[in-house]
């Protein structure tokens, strides 16, 4: 069995994929994972997930170029400059 290992470096942080280990069952996987990813106190917690249980989606295509729901869809610099100039002209 292949187990994917995710480790949390410090409390409060997100778990990150660290690597995989091969083990005949979960009991052995726990021992191996402790040795590989925890023996120097470099992790506060580990998640072990059988590789088969992972469902990967990787088909994220932005066919319509929908920038309106992202920050890069809003470049305000030119508009802000114009608005400031207009405001200055109105008060001046």
């Amino acid at each position: 069995m292949i187990y994917e290992v995710f480790r949390q470096e410090r409390k409060g942080q997100a778990f990150q994929h660290a690597g995989s280990i091969g083990a005949p069952n979960l009991e052995f996987a726990e021992v191996y994972a402790r040795e590989q990813y925890g023996r120097r106190q470099e992790s506060t917690a580990l998640w072990l997930v059988p590789r088969d249980a992972i469902d990967e989606l990787d088909d994220f295509v932005d066919e319509l170029g929908r920038t309106y729901h992202r920050v890069d869809g809003y470049s305000l610099k030119a508009k802000l400059k114009e608005a400031r100039e207009r405001a200055a002209a109105r008060s001046g």
Partner: peptide
């Protein structure tokens, strides 16, 4: 020595995949 054997395990895992 334990580290190096551990590296071998990780690396053979990559070869296995």
């Amino acid at each position: 020595v334990q580290d190096e054997v551990g590296h071998a395990q990780l690396i053979y895992r990559v070869v296995e995949d």
